[in-house]
Nucleic acid binder design. Structure first.
Lengths: 162, 162
DNA sequence: TTATTTGAGTTGCTTTATGCAACTAAATTT
DNA sequence: AAATTTAGTTGCATAAAGCAACTCAAATAA
């Protein structure tokens, strides 16, 4: 039967997890954001098994998050580079780090601080806000079916208009 | 040996994935944001196996993302409720949805649209910005060791000051 | 009062994933 | 020609996920 995949779920979160939810995948993407590009560098930095790394990189290329480039130097030499779709994961990685900086390590115990290269000031934490920039919580939100909603999505949202 | 765990990595992203990175976990949290609270409701909504659901709920309670409450109605009846730490995952879920709305479904094909309950206006997409609200990309950022940085983290950031 | 139903799991078995070590292959350097 | 480097593949052991059947406690129905 294999593991249940989320690819046919009519939900953005499920779709993102289908591409990114395997063990190791987001740490590989994190490394790419730090500038890692080569198979051997991912391997050394993460301590991941070669076969698992090869599988994850293949999947990331299939999902057009990475692009595999032959840099034809000497012997088999490739680079895995972030595409625009991959670079667009910056808010996701930031949300992960924000959350554990606050709730796992605690304020004042962050291992890494991310700053604006120009101004050298910390970047503010991501917040969900209304159109005027006022912070919102789960209870302030209302989910409605969008143009791509399936019948199931419509029914579910009708039942649970929260 | 068991699967490599990320708990001892000195990195916020790794810590978040340690708590949230198992298959199904973030879909369970998503359901909780939609108001699901009972074992049977998670099960029916997700189509997840009972034993896997029980394991994920236990882990989420261990990580203080859910709180297990005996609502003592009739027979064994419990609710799994989001804690403050769990509610703080809103930006993460939003980042996941934002990303696939744009890069998987495409604009105009979103299955679900999230609005401000009061104003009925869509909530803006999350963006990583500088202190003045100007959008930043990966290349505009610089990671520095924080107060909780280990020696390894310091060395790594010194080598790769990107 | 016994039988049935409901919610919330647990147990056992099968199939995938992951971890680990050894091996391959192409091009380069010694 | 032999050794090295990079990027894998293959084979085997263990852990995780899927599935069905079973448990257990309390309420409800017959």
């Amino acid at each position: 039967m294999g593991r249940t995949r989320f690819a046919d779920m009519n939900c953005g979160i499920a779709q993102a997890l289908e591409a990114l939810g395997d063990w190791w995948t987001l740490l590989i993407v994190r490394d790419a954001f730090f500038g890692v590009r080569r198979f051997g560098d991912f391997e050394a930095d993460l301590g991941i098994a070669k076969n698992v790394l090869a599988n994850r990189l293949e999947r990331l290329v299939d999902h057009a998050i990475f692009e595999k480039v032959d840099v034809g130097e000497a012997g088999p030499r490739f680079e895995y580079r972030l595409t625009a779709k991959g670079e667009a994961l910056l808010p996701l990685l930031t949300a992960l780090r924000d959350w554990s900086d606050e709730w796992v390590f605690g304020r004042g115990h962050e291992p890494v601080i991310v700053k604006d290269r120009r101004t050298r000031r910390r970047i503010p934490k991501l917040r969900v806000t209304d159109a005027d920039g006022h912070p919102l919580t789960r209870r302030d939100l209302r989910s409605e079916p969008g143009p791509g909603a399936s019948r199931e999505t419509r029914e579910r949202l009708a039942q649970r208009p929260r």
